[in-house]
């Protein structure tokens, strides 16, 4: 007989004992440990997932902030560029204005210097010419230049047209009898009296008062001034053409110089 029923019963009991012991010492502890570990892993996993969510949110927030910052930066940069450009244009405009002003000032200064130069030139020319003329007159006619000037002046008065004389008389009347004789040199009392007598003789005046004045700007000349007319002889008139010639000459010369500098 292959089956021993006592052994069968004993083996059933043995199996049940083994089942109980293994449940007590193997399955329960192991399963409990695995479950505990699983719970811990799940807890860690959930925690990690939450932290990952938080990190994602923070990352997205950071990205948004970064984008905002970038926009702000771009805006600030654009504003700064525009401001800089505006400032640059203003500075350039200001510099141009200053340069323009300086150029104008310089040109004015140049013009003033030019005018001064012409004035000096004119005076020098006049003086030199005067001196030359005086010497020439002395050498040739043995005559003083001032006397010749007075003679020419009186001669001009003598040769006045009737209408001109009438106009002078009218103007003397309008100026309440004020007559002014201006000369570039001192007139002696005899010469003054001579002129007064000559004017009376020419019926230009009667008993009006004549005032004699000296004007150095005349260079060499003498004039009769009323309120509305003037009868004069002035060496400057002769110099006027010469001065105009030189003025034109220097003007052209300056123009050429400037064009040359510009090139």
């Amino acid at each position: 007989m292959l089956i021993n029923w006592f052994t069968v019963a004993a083996q059933i009991i043995n199996f049940l004992i083994l089942l109980f012991l293994l449940k007590r010492f193997l399955y329960e502890p192991i399963v409990k440990t695995i479950d505990t570990r699983q719970q811990k892993i799940e807890a860690s996993w959930n925690k990690a997932r939450k932290e990952q969510e938080i990190a994602k949110q923070e990352a997205s927030l950071a990205i948004e902030k970064q984008q905002e910052l970038d926009l702000q930066k771009e805006k600030i940069l654009t504003e700064a560029r525009e401001k800089a450009e505006q400032t640059r244009k203003e500075l350039i405009q200001q510099a141009r204005s200053e340069v323009q002003a300086m150029q104008e000032e310089w040109e004015k200064s140049l013009d003033r210097q030019q005018d001064l130069f012409y004035e000096n030139l004119r005076q020098q020319l006049a003086r030199q010419s005067l001196e030359i003329t005086r010497r020439a007159l002395q050498d040739l006619a043995n005559a003083k230049l001032e006397q010749q000037a007075i003679s020419v002046f009186l001669n001009r008065l003598q040769n006045l047209e009737e209408s001109e004389t009438k106009q002078i008389v009218e103007s003397i009347k309008n100026s309440s009898g004020n007559l002014v004789v201006t000369s570039s040199f001192e007139l002696s009392p005899q010469v003054r009296q001579y002129i007064i007598n000559f004017l009376k003789k020419q019926n230009i005046m009667n008993d009006e008062k004549v005032t004699f004045t000296i004007n150095n700007n005349l260079i060499l000349g003498i004039s009769l001034n009323t309120s509305g007319s003037e009868i004069a002889w002035n060496f400057a008139d002769y110099l006027q053409n010469l001065e105009e010639y030189y003025f034109q000459y220097f003007k052209d010369f300056n123009k050429k110089e400037r064009e040359h500098e510009g090139k």
């Binding site: 083996q11 012991l21 010492f25 502890p29 192991i30 505990t36 811990k40």
Partner: peptide, 26 residues
């Protein structure tokens, strides 16, 4: 049969007991 069953049982139970004395969840 019974004797060697006890041997097998002893090995299983003792082995389990020895290992599960100090279980780690780490």
């Amino acid at each position: 049969t019974i004797v060697f069953t006890w041997v097998v049982m002893a090995i299983l139970v003792l082995g389990s007991w020895l290992v599960t004395r100090n279980l780690s969840v780490k």
